[in-house]
């Protein structure tokens, strides 16, 4: 039995905590607590996947790495989700990189164990298929957003999405990292951050971002 708590209510990951207690107990021996550090690479593109990760705190990014070195985020995953959908769908690799963008912790399950234990029809499998759909919705929306919306709007969206996941008013974030997330030059990110800071919506100091007025941020996101 894992040393981790035996009641699902004490787990922050939304997928695990939504499971019936019996299902959670069945899976628990195979869930290993793991801490996730900033910029830790969970998956490399097209390399074998070793583990599925259920995030309890912090957030990770699924990134497209381009040949010329440009990087852009496809999706953000936090406590609402799982990293490792290829395992669910019958394969063990993906042409994306997955890295930790906000440090935290989670539970991980070995890939071969996942394939054996998370079988079709079990509660976690059913839940994960539905999660897969939300993930695809998120990525589709990002495809539209990156085409149609301003860097400022996209920056607000990203900050709100990340805050939803980390549930903290303040988290570490460098300009360089945010520029990867948005797929724009660092200078553009600095400009937007300065604008938001002057408006009093965020406070951004020494790589730490504090969202002061999330509601106003969402108003800017939808109307600017």
């Amino acid at each position: 039995m894992s040393a981790y708590s035996s009641t699902r209510n004490s787990v922050s990951n939304h997928l695990l905590s939504a499971l019936p207690q019996q299902e959670y107990e069945r899976l628990l021996p195979n869930l290993e607590p793991v801490s996730l550090s900033l910029k830790q690479v969970l998956y490399e593109p097209n390399a074998p996947i070793d583990y599925a990760y259920f995030i309890n705190s912090g957030a990770s990014s699924m990134l497209n790495l381009m040949q010329d070195g440009q990087t852009i985020e496809a999706a953000t995953v936090g406590k609402e989700g799982m990293i490792g959908v290829p395992l669910l769908l019958g394969t063990t690799q993906i042409p994306l990189q997955v890295i930790v963008q906000v440090p935290g912790d989670g539970l991980r399950m070995k890939a071969d164990v996942f394939k054996a234990e998370v079988y079709w029809g079990c509660p976690l499998h059913t839940l994960l298929l539905r999660y897969m759909q939300t993930l695809m919705n998120q990525i589709s929306q990002t495809a539209a957003c990156n085409r149609l919306h301003s860097v400022e709007q996209r920056c607000c969206r990203w900050l709100l999405m990340t805050q939803d996941r980390v549930e903290l008013g303040s988290f570490p974030l460098t300009h360089e990292f945010l520029s990867y997330m948005l797929g724009v030059r660092r200078a553009s990110v600095s400009e937007v951050a300065a604008t938001l800071q002057r408006s009093g919506l965020i406070d951004y100091q020494r790589g730490q971002i504090t969202i002061s007025v999330p509601i106003e941020l969402s108003v800017i996101f939808s109307h600017s």
């Binding site: 699924m62 496809a74 495809a143 797929g183």
Partner: peptide, 19 residues
């Protein structure tokens, strides 16, 4: 498996649409 391929395609459009 097709669903994952579709997801890859959408992810690539995220990059393509921006870059």
């Amino acid at each position: 498996r097709y669903t994952l391929a579709l997801m890859t395609s959408i992810s690539q459009s995220v990059a393509c649409n921006s870059l």
